[in-house]
Amino acid sequence: MACFIVPATEAVVTTVIQKVVKKNEEKKDSNGSETKLRFSEKLKWLNGMLWGGSGLLAFEHLWHGEITPFFPFLTAANDPADTAAMLHEMATSGSAMAILVTAVWAVAAVAADKITAVQKNEKKKACAEA
């Protein structure tokens, strides 16, 4: 009905956070430090999945006639009973979608950090041996 609104809202929030974090990291970098994968770069992955996923889901809702190009945009908003069902779906499916995407991103971000750390260690070892 409108489950994609939850991940889309998260996407708005994470996009703002990413912009702020990126600015702060650029300031830090100009002071000269940090070579590992930036947090803002990792946040970009989450933004991409949230925006991309909710965009394609919005298309699916349009396909099924659940979204209209005129006010109130959601067909379920025309009837109070449908509105209640829509809100329930947003709270359950929508939240689960946002949580799953964020969890997958978190795993990918941790894995990326581990890979970077292993590569650094290997480089250090190679330098020490040479």
């Binding site: 489950c3 994609f4 991940p7 992955w45 991409g48 999945m49 949230l50 925006w51 991309g52 996923g53 909710s54 965009g55 394609l56 889901l57 979608m97 799953l100 995407v101 997958v104």
Partner: peptide, 10 residues
């Protein structure tokens, strides 16, 4: 990748 994986998870 972002679009397809995001939508697949959802």
């Amino acid at each position: 990748l972002y679009m397809f994986w995001g939508a697949s998870l959802m």
